[in-house]
Design a protein around this nucleic acid. Structure first.
Lengths: 343, 343
DNA sequence: CAAAATAACCAAATCGATTTGGGCAAAGTA
DNA sequence: TACTTTGCCCAAATCGATTTGGTTATTTTG
């Protein structure tokens, strides 16, 4: 029956119990230096019986090692947080937290916040993962300014050219969605992206332009402020379909927009997919619980997040040679929103 | 153009810059001791200009406290993690992380792990949130044994009677689902719960028993090991429906099981909801992306998580008077799986 | 056999903060 | 005047680990 230790067990206690010096305890427990195997056993036994757990703060203070990373979202609250919180951010978080723990790192979540809160200087981290930062992202800027290692999930926008990143392959991804929609019978596809300057958007636009040129499609693109959330998607669909009644399909890159677009279609009496096909990029809760469920992409975020943590870990260790990683190609998640009844 | 500081700024650097001792810097920056207002300004200015950020490890080592809490899941990997990671756990995580940050606490995610990994002694936290711990939960036991403040989301199972908790109201929740199914035309409802000893299960069973007695329903309950995941739900449905062909509805408390049950129904040629109604407790990704989507409950996890963080915060502060909190009543999330076509 | 290498261990320095226990004027009090 | 209080400041101790730079014995080598 072990008493609850009111005073924490330190290395000195173990040393006393084992009858050796603190140095030897440290060496024995960490496999460093020269220690007689018999002594090592004695130390280990003492540590176990006393319930010794090294004080992480003392360890980190001495060794300078990293212990905490943060995962931050640069998307506005209305897209990344809000009613349906379980999006891209949290999916990455789930995997990244596991991978981080396996490396002895603790991952702190810094969820999207209402405008005007920085709170970054509140927490003291050794590195950070950021998701699809836009050009001139203030959070990213602050992290870099503090000299912290950062890995971006998705190539960072703007002039942050030397921030290491995991490529999300937005060009091929867009191509995949467009190809599918065309094969499924779409004739005129419109594109909706966010208004901020993110690599995924510009790559999508490029892929879309190339595709349109190749298929004799008149390119129709609309950019909408992400902060507008689902309502923004509603408005975007409305504007696009009024100005371009020939459109019979929409590729809406932001899932919150896509849900709004579906709502507009319903209100306008447009059947999905018969009158209007709809697809989005990220296959998350929003895409799946939309009515009808939306065709989207499995981005393999599990691999992506894993790679990002790996990369960040390397940089934390001082090995900054690798500046990029690539995940597997996205895979199509086929749903009703792009499947017209045959005939 | 600030250089990237290769060497971290310490309190000594600030002291030198401001022309005072380290003690005075500490006092000035932390509002302790007696410091001339003019000196304080000088110190603050020096700290700002040098970009000083106190070393968290040194601080914590000295002061003892840590400002980190953990969110842990006691569900097996197959239920809470796995292919569809975005469940109960991550939904709570999203909200709890925000609330924690607002209080200056960092929240670490300790996702469900493969069996045999503790990893708890790896991180040092000063409090934890646990989700629906079962009777004799080893993680909870370890936390308590270390004397750490713990708040449970959902009343803890077994004899952990004095662990403070946020009530998930599983009795009323079950009643709500059963009442709905009966009103929707179900005649004989079977119940599937997890085999572990969790309060939500026993409360569900109680509510079910009472309901059955009141409606002349023969109670049919099956307990399935949670580690079996979706396949377990498949097996449970098979067994239940073979032994009790009179059943025309199932309330499956674990969402992973429910998805498996839906799969079995499809294989057995049972139409949902015409031949078999299906409902589950937690309205998450699994319930929504099931075919057909499953009727479930909005548990108001946002409020629940908020309350849990509040409660834990109080206990961290030493105020242990409040030992329980209650969230709002769950709300029905109606889906096709319980809506028979009229006529 | 003397010199060099190795094994096993330890005392003290170190990491960067906070806290303890003063020191020294200037101001207040008997 | 002498004695206490107050204001402002600092040197050194402290937190609990790791690391540096040794000291002894014990082998190995020339």
């Amino acid at each position: 029956m072990a008493d609850i230790p009111s005073q924490r067990i330190t290395i000195s206690d173990v040393a006393r119990e084992a009858g050796v010096s603190r140095t030897t305890v440290s060496h024995a427990l960490n496999g460093r230096g020269q220690v007689d195997p018999a002594t090592r056993l004695k130390v280990e036994e003492a540590a176990r019986s006393l319930g010794y757990r090294p004080n992480r703060h003392a360890q980190r203070l001495r060794t300078g090692g990293a212990s905490m990373i943060a995962l931050m979202s640069s998307m506005p609250f209305t897209v990344s947080g809000g009613p349906s919180r379980l999006g891209f951010f949290m999916e990455v978080a789930a995997v990244a937290a596991s991978s981080a723990l396996e490396r002895g790192l603790v991952m702190a979540l810094v969820p999207p916040h209402r405008p005007g809160q920085t709170s970054l200087n509140l927490l003291d981290i050794d590195g950070a993962l950021v998701i699809e930062p836009q050009a001139g992202d203030p959070q990213l800027a602050e992290l870099l300014q503090q000299g912290l290692p950062v890995v971006s999930i998705g190539r960072p926008g703007g002039d942050n050219v030397n921030v290491p990143y995991v490529d999300l392959l937005s060009g091929p991804a867009t191509q995949m969605l467009l190809t599918h929609m065309l094969a499924a019978g779409a004739r005129q596809i419109g594109l909706v992206v966010g208004a901020s300057e993110r690599t995924s958007y510009s790559q999508a636009e490029q892929a879309y332009a190339a595709m349109a040129a190749g298929h004799g499609m008149q390119p129709v693109v609309l950019r909408m402020d992400e902060a507008e959330g689902e309502d923004g998607g509603h408005a975007a669909a409305q504007q696009l379909l009024c100005e371009h009644p020939e459109l019979d399909a929409l590729l809406v890159m932001v899932d919150a927009f896509a849900v709004g677009a579906a709502r507009y279609a319903q209100q306008a009496g447009l059947r999905i997919p018969e009158d209007l096909m709809l697809a989005t990029r990220y296959d998350g809760l929003r895409a799946r619980s939309c009515e009808p469920p939306l065709t989207a992409l499995d981005l393999h975020l599990e691999d992506i997040a894993q790679q990002a943590v790996d990369l960040l870990f390397e940089h934390l260790r001082g090995d900054t040679t690798r500046r990029m990683a690539t995940g597997p190609l996205p895979a199509l998640a086929l749903r009703r929103s792009t499947q017209r009844k045959p005939g």
